[in-house]
Design a protein around this nucleic acid. Sequence first.
DNA 1: CTAAATGCAAAGCATTTGCAAATAT
DNA 2: ATATTTGCAAATGCTTTGCATTTAG
Lengths: 135, 135
Amino acid sequence: MDNTALLQKYSLKATPQRLEIVNVLSTHGHMNVNELYSTLLIKFPSISLATIYKNINIMLEKGFLLEVKLSEQKNVFELVKDNHSHVACMKCSDVIDIDLNIESIVNEVKKRSNYKLESNSLIFNGVCPRCSALK
Amino acid sequence: MDNTALLQKYSLKATPQRLEIVNVLSTHGHMNVNELYSTLLIKFPSISLATIYKNINIMLEKGFLLEVKLSEQKNVFELVKDNHSHVACMKCSDVIDIDLNIESIVNEVKKRSNYKLESNSLIFNGVCPRCSALK
DNA sequence: CTAAATGCAAAGCATTTGCAAATAT
DNA sequence: ATATTTGCAAATGCTTTGCATTTAG
């Protein structure tokens, strides 16, 4: 499914600005508001921060964008894919995805808390190999 | 160690406002900025939000207060204790602590990411037993 | 053609800062 | 006695809103 189809699937008009947001997120993976804004500015010199915010918000509502709240840095946004966890570098702010089998942990949490669980956010903070090497 | 001693350990003057913040957090567990403010207002009718913020920030810096970033609600603060995870209710915003053995997961993340891990934040979102019953 | 989206400017909140007065040590 | 802390008011910064214009379908 291409990006135009993705937007249409969620009843959003495929404007050039929106297409670029989706584009940029699908190549960069995780970006915060300002990174998105500066990146879009290149292609759309008169784009407004308000447009970025409005689009982020509507994409979050529609459910195909996800906000990741990180401990040591600004929140970032990513296109929704299969449930996965994140590893964040405290030095360079790089964020990577990692698929973990957390079934047993989730079951443990269910059993011990008696909560009905619906989602989870697992974030591991550390220093990436590149930054470790740079010491 | 009492709360005065805790503050002194971190070279902070044990003002009544600070003692009450620590007090309230040690009984309530997790509170956001406004909950802290309204609670402190009872005992200190002229306390300022700025004082709440200043103290939260200095306690975070000193390292005995921790900010928990939740997906569906405002961030909350807690006194630092042993590493643990959180389960949050999407209905009533209740947050509980849970001790999980995540050694094997952490090792897996280390191995697969090559990051040097320093901390983690595991948050499980769902509906608490009380809210489930209320349906 | 019409409803939705953009871009601008203004408004709204949350958080921080500067400073004089008060306070812990 | 002194450096720190408090509380107020102002400032800052991030996000949202309103509205006229433009644009996608």
